[in-house]
Amino acid sequence: MAKPKVAFYWCASCGGCEEAVVDLAEDILKVVEAVDIVFWPVAMDFKKKDVEAMKDGEIAVSFINGAVRTEEQEEMVKLLRRKSGLVIAFGSCAHLGGIPGLANFWNRDTIFERVYKEVPSIANPKGVLPKTKTKVGDMELTLPEFWDTVRTLDQVIDVDYYIPGCAPPPDIIMNAVSAILEGKLPEKGSVLAPDKSLCDTCPRSEKKPEKISMKEIKRPYEIIPDSEKCFLEEGIICLGPATRSGCGEKCINANMPCRGCFGPTKEVIDHGAKGLSAIASILGIEDEEKLSEEDVQKLVDKIVDPAGLFYMYSLPSSLLRRKKI
């Protein structure tokens, strides 16, 4: 029997997801043994036309990482969707928008203005901005359109499953691959990671007091957190309570709080709203009757850039998706 065909593609991403595949180490050999990779721009020489030449649905699974922010990415993922049986959104950016999704606090004009004119490292005396069409002699060069808004993969095409993480850890990837190969997939639309949030597996949960009131807000650089205490206890905002587990607690073990790359649990629509609701609800509530509205505001104001913090990985997948400009 022919091995199932598999494609990998990247959109607006950092390349970390590609690394994550390589990080499977020896396990990658098992994958290669079981499947036939037909498209992987980062590692192998296939062209778009090779994909176009395939029959619809010929690719068993496409793993697509990165958010969608350009015309080219949109075109490619639509092509892959047509040619694939299953499409897996691979990693935070495809799943939620990820770090590139923070660009939704701006739009094309403000981003171009900044990147091509304002940043100290740019030398662009004529203030030239990228255009989709440029005449060079008799030739016309084209660039794909850069959209105002970064979108998650499922806002552009139908997605069957999600592998979360920035980047997805090897065990989550292997489990997903095994489930696909064995045909043991859950309900369509599922995130292939545990349903509970990070506190479930957090090594600091054991010693956590039953009630936690955040008396103050500290940023991670301001203190060296006790490596055994719950971050919230020390006043450091951790999105672990609101974020799906399965990451292997790498940040926590490096004494850094969770920033939410695995996204929300399945009942939650807006990761940031839920995270902020939980954090706000325990802010200085030990003496809540005694704190005036001004005291509360002062405490809350210690949170720098709340939108960026609570929506660090999930802005494009949030209810509002982007800033109103």
Binding site: K196, C199, E210, K211, S213, P241, E267, S281, I282, I285
Partner: peptide, 15 residues
Amino acid sequence: IDEDLCSGCSTCITL
């Protein structure tokens, strides 16, 4: 509380 979803974060207990 749905026990399949609760991770024991304690937020509800606190408040």
